[in-house]
Every structure is written in C-alpha cells, then in structure tokens.
C-alpha cells in the first residue's frame, strides 16, 4: 500500500523524552517495582517495553521484570482475515498471580488488541492489577478501554494511519501520520 505522509507526530527525540516521562509515571504509581511485570505486545510493544525498562533502570537502578505477549490466537477477527497471521512467542513467567502487569503497546486504537491481551493474561493466572501504557492514543475506541500512561494523544480520522517506526523493524525512529493513497 502507498501512503501520503501528512505529519510527523513525533521525532526520535520526542519519543525518547516521552518514554522517560512514562517511565517516571510508572515508578511514581508503583512504589514496589519488584511486583511489576512490563509486558510488551508483539510486535512493536516489545522494544517499547524494553526502552521503558531501561529508563526505569537509569532512574531507579531497578531491573523491572519483562515479558512478551502475542495476542494472535485471542483475536476476535480471525475468521474474517483471509490469511492466518504469523504467531510470535508469548513469554511470561510461570506465575503471574499477584503481579502488577503493565501492558505496553505502540498505538491504542479500537481497544480490541488490549481486550485480547487481557484475556490471554487471565489464562496465565490472576494478576493483582493490569495497567496499560501506549506511545500513541489515536482515539476511535470500539470497547470501553483506556490507557494509564499515554505518550501522546493524537486526533485522527478513521482513514488515517499512525505509523510507529522503530529501529528494530524500520530504518528510522519516528511516528508518522499517514493516509493510504
């Protein structure tokens, strides 16, 4: 698909500052970091969770536990997508019961990914609480879900697409607002 670039939502510098702020908010809200598990949602939530964990380490010297979650098998639209998506690895500690889990994803949009993520988490145990951190909240929710930590709220039209570009997957590091040509 070809895109028209409409705006740069965040530069690499903006992303860095915003994630440092989110990291400090997480520390502020969770005095006992030993009970916290940062869980990145595949694919782009995984490196974002790593970055936030690194920022927390810089600030507080604490190594926050991390996990990854692939929500493919919990999607509610699998029967309508023609091609089965490739499944990535879900890696969570053996027991998540009693933990404070902070889900990390790049963009919060319909909320359906987060619904799937919560269902999957519950299959692994009973966390004490689940919080949500997203780099971009672009609106258009289809489920009653909200984020606890938001990098930036962006007003979008339904046709527009937020492209979060990370060095792990893309050539550059920035966030773009684009629209299909």
């Amino acid at each position: 698909m070809e895109f028209t670039e409409k705006a740069v939502v965040m530069t690499a510098g903006d992303m860095n500052r915003v994630m440092a702020r989110m990291a400090s908010q997480i520390v502020e809200n969770n005095p006992d970091l030993s009970g916290v598990l940062l869980v990145g949602i595949h694919r782009r939530g995984v490196p974002l969770a790593d970055t936030i964990a690194a920022k927390i380490k810089e600030m507080d010297g604490v190594d926050v536990a991390r996990g990854t979650l692939d929500i493919t098998l919990y999607r509610d639209d699998l029967t309508t997508v023609a091609d089965r998506p490739v499944i990535n690895k879900t890696e969570l500690p053996a027991n998540i019961t009693g933990k404070t889990i902070i889900l990390v994803d790049d963009v919060l949009y319909t909320g359906r990914t987060i619904r799937a993520a919560m269902d999957e988490l519950i299959d692994f145990g009973r966390p004490r609480r689940v919080q949500l951190a997203v780099l971009i909240d672009r609106g258009w929710r289809e489920l009653p879900i909200q984020a606890d930590y938001v990098g930036k709220t962006v007003t979008t039209t339904e046709a527009e697409i937020i492209k979060v570009m990370l060095p792990e997957f893309d050539e550059t590091e920035q966030v773009l607002l684009v629209e299909p040509k």
Binding site: D70, I87, T90, D119, E120, D123, F124
Partner: peptide, 18 residues
C-alpha cells in the same frame, strides 16, 4: 507455527480460544 503451539502445550491452561 507448530513451534509456538508447542509452548501452549506446556502452559497450565493448555487452551486458546482461536
């Protein structure tokens, strides 16, 4: 794909809603 499903077979709840 089978490699990722092998992990599910080691979980406590060996079931996904797919």
């Amino acid at each position: 794909t089978a490699v990722t499903f092998r992990d599910i077979n080691t979980r406590q709840i060996k079931k996904v809603p797919t």
